[in-house]
């Protein structure tokens, strides 16, 4: 019983900018299906009285005071950049957005 269709996987791959071949899409559709089914069992275990949560520990309000801390130097900031110029990261022109 596949609930995740191949086209949906292709759509997700496109959104995530991942190139996938046809056979990979087939295989991934099956694998993701198993994962989704497994996760589903959680909603069976949790009743209506259990609120949805994004964190395993019930923690809230973790804050930082508005005080300036240490920063990277320009050289440090750019040290991992594939390319740079004028103290800035150099990237290919991307035309489909502006």
């Amino acid at each position: 019983m596949s609930t995740l269709r191949r086209e949906q996987v292709a759509h997700l791959a496109r959104l995530a900018h991942i190139d996938m071949a046809d056979d990979e899409l087939d295989r991934m559709a099956g694998e993701l299906d198993v994962i989704v089914d497994s996760i589903k069992s959680i909603s069976e275990a949790a009743g209506d009285d259990v609120p949805a949560t994004s964190h395993p520990i019930p923690l809230a309000n973790v804050y930082r005071e508005d005080v300036v801390g240490e920063t990277l130097t320009n050289e440090e900031a750019l040290s991992g950049a594939p390319d740079s110029a004028d103290g800035r990261f150099k990237v290919p022109a991307i035309l489909d957005e502006d």
Partner: peptide
């Protein structure tokens, strides 16, 4: 200086 015709972009974070 617009994106049309640009060869590359520089990013300041």
């Amino acid at each position: 200086g617009r994106i049309q015709g640009a060869e590359y972009s520089l990013v300041d974070y």
